[in-house]
């Protein structure tokens, strides 16, 4: 596709666009937006790194390499490593079903996928406590069989999965709907079976959307606080994720360590942002060709 150069050919020194405001209005609006963003987004980000490194590099390294911090990092990575593949599988399956087939209860499925977006994470955590907790529905049975979910790693993984369910499916559904089913039909007529169609046709067509959804999913999985906080029990070195660890350190007035660990999460956010921008530009290139 080519872009149409609007008014580009005009040789007049002053280009007058219908939608253009006067210069001072533009300056003020830009300034307002920029100062707002600096105050509420940029400044806190800088502050995190500033506070983290205020007492020197050694303190910083010590804070993120002490056993509890390492355990928190490990737990966060574990939860993400379990939640993301599961959500990938679920997201692709749900998007595939919603975008390419007509069936009863489709709108219910779509609403269900959105549920974690509309429910407060604390409620999400509480749901699991109510089901799997000691006083919960399945509590006695779980205790009999010596399975612990709440205040243990499985609970954290479950909560993480719950809050991240929509990310991949939501990303893929509009994409797959826009692409339609003709390519898949063509593949099947040519003799491809279901797996071949998925592998050679469907997945390559959605790979950027998939990657985009995965990155957002990962960012949320690692940064989740509310739902995880309810089910974790805050046992240091055992059920503390990174974000919970930050809270504990901060409550103990150990702000240098708290900011050091927080800077890891901030770093993750920056990487996510960079990847997201990169993918968006790739997709834009693809579609503008």
């Amino acid at each position: 596709m080519t872009t149409i150069p609007l008014l580009q050919a005009s040789s007049a020194p002053h280009k007058i666009l219908v939608t253009q405001e006067s210069p001072w209005a533009r300056w003020i609006l830009t300034l307002l937006a920029l100062s707002f963003l600096s105050l509420f987004l940029l400044l806190p980000l800088v502050a995190v790194f500033f506070e983290a490194l205020k007492k020197g590099w050694d303190v910083y390294i010590a804070a993120i390499t002490e056993p509890d911090a390492l355990a928190a990092i490990q737990l966060t990575l574990t939860a993400a490593a379990i939640a993301i593949p599961l959500n990938l599988a679920f997201g692709i399956a749900a998007a595939w079903a919603i975008a390419k087939f007509e069936f009863r209860g489709k709108s219910i499925l779509i609403s269900l996928i959105d549920l974690p977006f509309s429910v407060s994470p604390v409620v999400a955590g509480l749901i699991y406590v109510l089901i799997f907790g000691l006083q919960g529905w399945m509590g006695p049975w779980l205790r009999e069989h010596d399975i612990s979910i709440i205040f243990a790693v499985p609970g954290i993984v479950l909560a993480t999965i719950f809050v991240t369910v929509p990310f991949i499916a939501r990303e893929l559904i509009p994409l797959m709907q826009a692409q339609g089913t003709e390519e898949e039909e063509a593949a099947i007529i040519l003799g491809a079976n279901g797996w071949q169609t998925l592998w050679y046709i469907t997945l390559p067509n959605i790979k950027w959307g998939l990657l985009y959804g995965t990155i957002l999913c990962n960012a949320r999985a690692m940064g989740e606080f509310g739902a995880v906080s309810v089910v974790s029990g805050h046992i240091r070195g055992l059920t503390n994720t990174l974000s919970l660890h930050v809270e504990i350190l901060y409550n103990e007035y150990n702000s240098a360590a708290a900011f050091a660990v927080a800077s890891l999460l901030a770093l993750l956010a920056l990487i996510t942002l960079a990847l997201k921008t990169f993918i968006e530009s790739r997709v834009a290139q693809k579609t503008s060709r």
Binding site: E182, E183, E185, A186, A187, I188, I189, G191, A192, N193, Y200, I201
Partner: peptide, 16 residues
């Protein structure tokens, strides 16, 4: 469909 051995040409080509 797979076993019918038909060739199908779509209006909007449906190329991969």
């Amino acid at each position: 469909v797979r076993d019918r051995h038909v060739g199908f040409v779509f209006q909007h080509y449906a190329l991969f």
